[in-house]
Amino acid sequence: MNFHETFFILLAAIIMIFSVLVVTTDKILRAATYLLFVLLATAGLYYWLQYEFMAAVQVALYAGGIVVLIVFSVLLTHQIHHKLVSITLTRKLLAFGIAGLGALVSIVTIVNYDFNTAPAEAMKVDVRQIGLHLVNTGHNGFALPFEVVSILLLAALIGAITIAKKEESNSDNI
């Protein structure tokens, strides 16, 4: 077992342990923190695959963006003494069953799939290429998804402004 494998096993262990902890903890902010570790370890995996751009995106978007937003909203709504409602045994069992079934299907699929282990050619991913791919309409181009996502984000932004906008009658004239 060499250094790289150790690294992989370590990251995988972190992901698995903290994934379980996310769903088993009874404090919502702790769950968010465990989720952060899961996401960071995933970023570590990307980095391990020498896919730095993806790792940075993972950290910036998921860890730095989404988890922060989750934590921020938890802060606004939850007091420190709030605890999650404990789940009944039948529901727990049901959840375990479904999760186990899902895991089984995945594992069976992975084991049965004949992975093509031909060495992939080293890909130099620099920013210029990513940018060109993003606005490219041809092969390997992502112009359409890019634009669709932009419109989605715009809609989300407008929606957020509409929700956050103060109602005229409610304004305290501050």
Partner: peptide, 28 residues
């Protein structure tokens, strides 16, 4: 010397706020 050095720095600095948020909340 990452080829996405600046992006890396921006993304990591965004993690620091999490510590502050957690510190504020967990202090009771």
């Amino acid at each position: 010397d990452l080829n996405i050095g600046l992006f890396y720095i921006i993304s990591i600095t965004s993690l620091g706020v999490l510590g502050i948020l957690l510190a504020g909340w967990s202090s009771n």
